[in-house]
């Protein structure tokens, strides 16, 4: 039992994928166990729906299962699996956009689709508490995919710029500039909820 726990906790992702490639299916179990929560959080930020996020997450692990031999040791496993999940999430977004092509109320517009709280009398220290998780999620969803992707990887998942650059195959400078612009867009979107702190 102790050995089991130690194996689960201390075996690196790269060792696990290598064992899975050699036919050890238990290693696949462990990778799923290790990554399902971080990945669903990641995918959910794109889609805003738990059900859709679980579908995409299943597809992600299905790809891992099916394409295990495509993984090469030159990359970190985390980078590889996040790349797969991110691509699938973006594909799902594109499908949605096609489905809602004729819909008037599109994501990405300037219009706010939530009630703006009356914050005129709130003291400034409440600035952050009135911006709920849902408000942030909706604001992230209004970003275009390329900004959404980097802000999720950087500010939700906490990856370094180098890691993000590797994941989305975009030069480091571009990643940094996108994160900067994404943060400015969120600020522009939500500034009406924030008090001046001057």
């Amino acid at each position: 039992m102790e050995n089991q726990v130690r194996y689960e906790n201390e075996t690196s992702d790269e060792v696990l994928i290598s064992r899975f490639q050699q036919g050890d299916n238990y290693a696949f179990d462990l990778l799923v166990k290790r990554y399902k929560d971080p990945l669903i959080n990641f995918i959910y930020r794109f889609l805003g729906s738990q059900t859709d996020a679980e579908d995409v997450l299943q597809e992600t692990f299905l790809r891992l299962y099916k394409n295990k031999h495509y993984y090469k040791e030159i990359a970190k496993f985390s980078t590889w699996i996040y790349t797969i999940a991110g691509n699938l999430a973006k594909t799902e977004l594109r499908k949605r956009r096609r489905r809602t092509f004729f819909s008037i109320n599109q994501y990405g517009g300037e219009e706010k689709d939530y009630d703006i709280p009356d914050d005129s009398n709130n003291p400034e220290q409440e600035t952050n508490t009135q911006i709920t998780d849902d408000i942030i999620q909706e604001a992230i969803e209004r970003l275009s995919p390329k900004f959404k992707e980097v802000i999720i990887l950087r500010d939700i998942q906490g990856f370094s710029y180098d890691e993000i650059s590797e994941m989305i195959k975009v030069p480091l400078g571009t990643v940094k500039s996108r994160v900067n612009r994404a943060r400015l867009k969120l600020q522009a979107d939500l500034q009406h909820l924030m008090k001046d702190v001057d």
Binding site: I136, I156, R183, Q187
Partner: peptide, 8 residues
């Protein structure tokens, strides 16, 4: 932007 980033 600083506040929002911390909040996120």
């Amino acid at each position: 932007v600083t506040q929002l980033t911390e909040r996120i």
